[in-house]
């Protein structure tokens, strides 16, 4: 019985891994680019979801993303730091900023925290524009293509980062952190009474989230080769981070990934199929999902689809 369950888990996972590893050999450069962009979005979605597990809704992930992007690009431009090391440095700088920002803001709850994070990303845009000698200002920063434009290598790098995020989320789920995060999310006052320091755990979640968001930002700057403040600190980046997990299902490993796969596939399908009105169709789909699938795709799977396959008593 135990062996059967293990097989049911391991086999699909092995097939999935094999599929992902062989993907560059199966498709051309266009689909490989879509995959790279999709995986980048999955990392952002999963990172956002880590913080959301503590009940905090960040609408300022673009700030951390932009810090990672700029740190990596500027370190390359000024000190010729290899891009992968630059991404790591960007991730660490974003983490450092998150500690500072977290201790200042994570005592706030709900909407107040969300507003502060928006202000954080917006303030960074202004700071970046006003310090062109340091940041490149409105003109932005450019870098040569990542790995000399070798998209396969870029794909495997971003896939490795995604694997790291998934591993970290899995470890969180297996550890006591999961109980602390859930307790804080469900009722912060009760969690406090139980001896859980909410600020400490929220800052920890924010740090993990910031690390991967910063890493993704670093990757983005080298992959896209040119960044400007209005693009990387854009509110749209922050919104994308939260739409995908909500669509897929919150507080799960698979939810943010599933949400991203479907949203990106629908987005691209509509963009190519309808030269007009694709964003209206896209918006309508999102509205319908929020209205009729409040727990996202995984909620739909668990609540509606899975029971259909289960044997019913008395039959």
């Amino acid at each position: 019985m135990g062996s059967s369950i293990r097989w049911k888990t391991t086999l699909p996972l092995a097939i999935l891994c094999a599929f992902l590893l062989l993907f560059p050999k199966l498709v051309g450069s266009y689909f490989l680019h879509l995959a790279v962009s999709g995986i980048l979005a999955m990392i952002l979605a999963s990172s956002w979801d880590i913080l959301a597990r503590t009940g905090q809704v960040s609408v300022g992930q673009a700030g951390l993303f932009g810090i990672g992007a700029y740190s990596s690009a500027l370190l390359y431009q000024r000190y010729a730091l290899p891009p992968v090391l630059g991404m790591l440095a960007g991730a660490l700088i974003a983490t450092f900023v998150s500690i500072f920002l977290g201790y200042l803001t994570l005592r706030l709850r709900g909407i107040y925290f969300s507003i502060t994070t928006i202000a954080f990303a917006e303030a960074l845009t202004v700071i970046w524009l006003m310090t062109p000698d340091i940041t490149g200002g409105a003109m932005g920063v450019s870098t040569p293509p990542l790995f000399g434009g070798d998209r396969e290598k870029a794909y495997y790098l971003i896939l490795a980062i995604l694997a790291a995020v998934v591993a970290v989320v899995w470890l969180i789920e297996q550890s006591r952190l999961n109980f602390a995060f859930t307790a804080i999310r469900e009722n912060e006052d009760v969690a406090n009474v139980l001896g859980i320091n909410p600020t400490k755990y929220k800052v920890l979640a924010f740090m993990i989230s910031a690390f991967f968001t910063g890493f993704a930002g670093g990757f983005y700057s080298h992959y896209n080769t040119y960044i400007i403040p209005y693009e990387v600190f854009n509110l749209g980046v922050s919104i994308a981070c939260l739409v995908m997990p909500i669509f897929g299902g919150l507080y799960t490993i698979a939810g943010p990934i599933l949400g991203t796969v479907l949203i990106k596939a629908i987005e691209e399908y509509l963009r190519v199929t309808f030269s007009y009105g694709h964003q209206i169709a896209y918006g309508l789909i999102l509205v319908l999902v929020v209205l009729f699938m409040p727990e996202g795709l995984l909620g739909l799977w668990r609540g509606k689809i899975l029971p259909l396959f289960r044997s019913r008593p008395g039959r």
Binding site: T9, I15, F19, A254, V261, L298
Partner: peptide
């Protein structure tokens, strides 16, 4: 359940 969850991921991917 987990196996089916992974299956779902695979199918959707």
């Amino acid at each position: 359940m987990r196996g089916k969850g992974f299956g779902f991921v695979l199918v959707l991917l």
